[in-house]
Design a protein around this nucleic acid. Sequence first.
DNA 1: ACTAAATAGGATATAATTGTCCGATTTAGG
DNA 2: CCTAAATCGGACAATTATATCCTATTTAGT
Lengths: 144, 144
Amino acid sequence: MFSKACEYGIRSATYIALNSLEGRRVSLKEIAKEIDSPVAFTAKILQLLSKNNIVDSVKGAYGGFDINRTKIDKLMLSEIVNAIDGDKIYVGCGLGLKECNADKPCPVHEKFVGIRNDLRKMLENTSLYEMATGLEMGLTYLKR
Amino acid sequence: MFSKACEYGIRSATYIALNSLEGRRVSLKEIAKEIDSPVAFTAKILQLLSKNNIVDSVKGAYGGFDINRTKIDKLMLSEIVNAIDGDKIYVGCGLGLKECNADKPCPVHEKFVGIRNDLRKMLENTSLYEMATGLEMGLTYLKR
DNA sequence: ACTAAATAGGATATAATTGTCCGATTTAGG
DNA sequence: CCTAAATCGGACAATTATATCCTATTTAGT
Ligand code: FES
Ligand code: FES
């Protein structure tokens, strides 16, 4: 569904959001440990999220990553997915035709767009705040 | 969503079904041309579908691929996807945790399983017959 | 028997994704 | 000023997915 990079990206952002809500800035090392991801690869993804203004990064001692608190409830999963995987899950055809196009649809088009739209809506309506609070309350997990 | 192999597999099977309904057996070359896929790679996928008893293959001159006519309306997309991509789309966690598990869910689990079940139901309820007749009536396409 | 056309299958090549390593730079604190 | 801790960014390595090539085998027709 999503690339590994995107999965790590969402998990990273969620963990950063959780800590930013509590006023803590977190380091790459801590993030990778808490979401159980390869450190150096996670670094690349965080760079990308930083360039896309999804997370803020601070270099040097006591540096790390955080997210502006006022932004956390406005930041939607769709923005993270878009920054990492682009829009291919929205525009791609389920059967791999050049692009999804209702004027010359593939045999699953009709049924596929419904599911894809549900996915899009889900991503557009799920905020990092919602993700982070579920974690905080011990209802959900970022590793296992 | 699906692997390239799976996309080619579905498109191949649909094209074979269409022709089997009309009593024609089709060759690899023709299939690859009509679904616009790489010939040799498509051959591998057809081998796999053949081993899984989804399509029948006939060697030698005038050989090719077909699907038993009485089977076409019972063959569901889910069987093809399962033969090629396995069950990872059903059991995999949306955020990449070891496996999807409601007892220790990731932050998107609740919303994700709904979408995934819709996808599963769609695949389980869509027959090759349905796919092929849409094609036959010129409503849908396998290449563009 | 021979030939041409077709699938089967193993070996190999290419591309994309995932993952690692290391030096450069930045920064807080002693 | 120095050091330690941290991100940045480029180069590289490993793995997986995609794609190609070639030979063997099968089969209908002549
Ligand atoms: S054309 Fe295939 S999903 Fe829209
Ligand atoms: S645990 Fe992540 S989708 Fe179910």
